[in-house]
Design a protein around this nucleic acid. Structure first.
Lengths: 113, 113
DNA sequence: GTTACATGCTAACTTTTCTTTGCAGGGGCA
DNA sequence: TGCCCCTGCAAAGAAAAGTTAGCATGTAAC
């Protein structure tokens, strides 16, 4: 189970139509950047940004490979993941959130600025 | 199961520490706005914005109630939800995504602007 | 050499989201 | 009446995210 911060990152990463489509496409088959961009109908630059974010969240992985004709190609594939979203799971994740401002309360006093 | 757009909305809504805490707090007990704001250590105005977003995503519900001393209080509570996040689920959700750009047109009406 | 296809990066702009600040009304109670 | 607690909303500024455009590199083929 992911920590609170990791959960936020994963959710933020998946909360985007482009990245959702990337995950869906890579779930069907691994692919390299240029081809994936053509299939999705978006620019390569844009796709690369989204791929970087997906990789940062641990949702996809990449490896460089050389094609038969010697071209360097970067193949991406999905990292298997399974996250159950329920109010209880959220409550559990919140406990591991690193938040500069709020801590546990029980005294009922007001919070300092 | 939510549509692709609904999934994006739910994920975007939950991808925020404040809202995650709100869900966690309401999962423990229903609460009214002012008290919840005090417990979370955030301003009422900020909390209201997040509550509105949570409600728009269908994650919480609200009902106005009158306290014993006649004050109007808005109680919020979590809507039970359960979303399984896997590459396959994402692939399924993508099929129902409405995309402004890839929309199929047949030349019936003209588009404004 | 030129064309085609692969990679990468970043600066700059646009858009969206987040947060604060300020104002509004209503009720209870000393 | 003045004070405290409850609600609500919107403008405006600050911060983050999304997107485009441009340039640079390398290999293969004509």
């Amino acid at each position: 189970m992911p920590t609170g911060d990791e959960l936020v990152e994963v959710l933020a990463t998946l909360a985007n139509p482009h990245r959702l489509r990337v995950v869906a496409a890579l779930a069907r088959e691994r692919n390299y950047v240029s081809r994936l961009a053509r299939e999705l109908g978006i620019s390569r630059a844009l796709l690369q940004v989204h791929l970087r974010k997906l990789q940062a969240a641990g949702l996809v992985s990449a490896q460089m490979e050389l094609s038969e004709d010697g071209k360097a190609m970067k193949f991406y594939e999905v990292t298997p993941f399974s996250i159950q979203l329920t109010p209880e799971a959220v409550a559990a994740a919140v406990l591991t959130l690193t938040t500069p401002e709020i801590v546990q309360r029980d005294g009922g006093e007001e919070s300092p600025i």
